[in-house]
């Protein structure tokens, strides 16, 4: 796929030699994730912290998240956006407090993108779930040209992940219903510095 994207990028770049032209990549991250990452039921024995997508087959240990490198635009971005929707259902008998954050890290941060070392939390949201209730948490953020966090995205790609913390004694079923990235670039910037 990466080669196909490179070829398509060449094709379009040849035609988009204008200072106004913006090339945008809408990435449907959800479609790339394993089914086990999309929906699970988790027991909360007082508190728990899970990390999605799970790249080390252990939901509760921090890892390198998901490496995004098959995207046409990675250099000299003029914009970056993310929108994540997590549907949470309290399937147990106790109240749960949920906090979630979206993390962004450079491709090199393969060990742990949740420790604040070279990585950042771009979006955060919280919810309180009564027993048998359902709520959708939305994480949304955008970066404009000049934001230093855009420097985390390089030609090698970047890493993304979700940190979801639950407090209380119950069980919760989460379901990722939306996970989209938007990367924007002016190809003319690559030609005319």
């Amino acid at each position: 796929m990466k080669r196909l994207i490179a070829l398509a990028t060449l094709l379009v770049a040849l035609s988009a030699c204008s200072g106004r032209t913006i090339v945008t990549a809408d990435v449907d991250v959800l479609s790339f994730l394993d089914a086990v990452d999309l929906s699970q039921e988790v027991t909360v024995p007082g508190s728990i912290e899970v990390y999605l997508p799970d790249s080390d087959d252990d939901l509760i240990t921090p890892d390198g998240g998901y490496l995004v490198n098959s995207v046409p635009l990675l250099d000299q971005l003029t914009g970056f956006g993310v929108r994540v929707e997590i549907e949470l259902e309290n399937t147990g008998s106790g109240t749960l407090d949920i906090a979630a954050s979206f993390r962004l890290a450079p491709a090199s941060d393969s060990a742990n993108i949740y420790d604040g070392n070279n990585d950042v939390a771009l979006a955060e949201a919280a919810a309180s779930l009564a027993p048998s209730s359902t709520q959708t948490v939305v994480l949304e953020a955008s970066l404009a040209q000049g934001d230093p966090n855009l420097d985390l995205i390089t030609g090698d790609g970047f890493r993304i992940g979700l940190d979801v913390r639950a407090t209380g004694s119950s069980t919760v079923r989460y379901r990722l219903t939306g996970f989209a990235l938007t990367l924007s670039q002016r190809p003319f910037n690559l030609i005319v510095p």
């Binding site: 796929m1 196909l4 994207i5 398509a8 379009v12 035609s15 988009a16 030699c17 204008s18 106004r20 032209t21 913006i22 090339v23 945008t24 990549a25 809408d26 990435v27 449907d28 479609s31 790339f32 098959s70 995207v71 046409p72 635009l73």
Partner: peptide
């Protein structure tokens, strides 16, 4: 004539649409 103002790649596991 003008080059396109915006070109959008829609990237998913199913492929790429422009």
């Amino acid at each position: 004539p003008t080059s396109p103002d915006e070109i959008v790649f829609h990237v998913s596991a199913d492929g790429i649409q422009i």
